[in-house]
């Protein structure tokens, strides 16, 4: 998604290039090598993508297409209040994940740079990066164990007298979205911290020395040097987090249960439910195309806004 404008530029500049038969002969073996890969992409990515568009404007049943219906599938889903709820879920979750996922890691990144004990610094990096490797099943499994009604956290809170009855973290609709945002940030914070950490290390130290001579406090240095110097990295992290969050599937799928799924069913999960479970292919693909349009327009909008600055 990030790369779309680059892809377009590549195609445009190709037309300007010239072909020469002698060169073609020299490079023929290379084309033979890359052809199977291009065929693979055509069969397993581009063909399914074109099918997604095609099916979305068809009446599609178990036996295949039974005719062109134009935008009927799109009208049908936009008339469906469930679908509007799905759009709301996707937007709210996306905003939450993006906001916390791109701002919070700045704090540990700044802290990591200031730690002078090298061994501690390495250990902290190792520990906070670890959850990034875990699958969503493992992440949810770990937190379900820790936060279950008879689990460690509820038991401690009850014995301290802070709560009377266990908090149902995974079965209360008020917590559902928060739990997804929290677990996503927990999973990704180590990765993003490392990115910010190396960006801070590449800031010119003269800036800090000059500020020191002017008598700047620690907070002034962070606010007036570190943060502005991080802007370019923050833009990239923002875009990657935003586009990733729009694809939220695994966490929502795994957390879904009768009590909370209406709050956390995302567009990606809706595509799966309609297409794979209900086999309502026209509706599923219309939803998929809408997701693609949202993702591409957001990517282009963000790139346009950040490039102008």
């Amino acid at each position: 998604m990030v790369l779309l404008p680059d892809a377009i530029t590549s195609f445009v500049s190709f037309r300007k290039g010239s072909m020469d038969t002698r060169l073609l002969k020299k490079y023929a073996p290379l084309y033979v090598l890359i052809t199977p890969i291009i065929i693979y992409f055509c069969v397993f990515i581009f063909y399914p993508l074109s099918q997604a568009f095609y099916i979305s404007i068809q009446e599609f049943g178990l036996l295949g297409s039974s005719g062109f219906v134009g935008l009927d599938n799109y009208y049908t889903i936009f008339d469906d209040s469930d679908f509007l709820q799905v759009i709301e879920n996707t937007i709210v979750l996306s905003l939450g994940i993006t906001f916390f996922g791109f701002t919070l890691p700045i704090i540990p990144a700044i802290a990591l740079v200031e730690i002078t004990q090298m061994a501690a610094k390495r250990w902290f990096q190792t520990l906070i990066y670890l959850p990034n490797l875990f699958s969503w099943v493992i992440i949810i499994g770990i937190w379900m164990t820790f936060l279950s009604p008879a689990g460690s956290l509820n038991s401690v809170l009850i014995s301290l007298g802070i709560i009377d009855a266990p908090i149902l973290f995974f079965a209360n609709e008020d917590y559902a979205r928060g739990m997804i945002v929290f677990q996503t940030v927990w999973k990704d914070i180590g990765y993003t911290t490392v990115i910010y950490f190396s960006a801070i290390l590449s800031i010119n130290t003269d800036l800090y020395e000059a500020a020191e001579m002017d008598g700047a406090t620690v907070w002034q240095k962070i606010w007036n040097i570190t943060i502005p110097q991080l802007y370019p990295t923050m833009k990239i992290v923002f875009l990657i987090t935003l586009l990733g969050s729009l694809r939220t599937f695994d966490s929502a799928y795994l957390m879904s249960n009768g009590l909370i799924s209406h709050k956390i069913t995302t567009l990606a999960l809706y595509v799966y439910e309609q297409g794979i479970l209900e086999f309502d292919l026209g509706i599923a693909n219309a939803a998929g195309v809408i997701l693609l349009i949202i993702a591409i327009s957001l990517a282009l909008a963000v790139q346009k806004i950040t490039r102008n600055k």
């Binding site: 680059d6 190709f14 990515i45 997701l291």
Partner: peptide, 24 residues
């Protein structure tokens, strides 16, 4: 020759979220 075209194809594969093509 045609490297830009091939790069274009490869970059395009990266821009397509897998959930959209899941059903097809």
């Amino acid at each position: 020759p045609g490297k830009h075209f091939l790069t274009g194809i490869i970059l395009l594969t990266l821009t397509i979220p897998s959930q959209i093509i899941m059903v097809p």
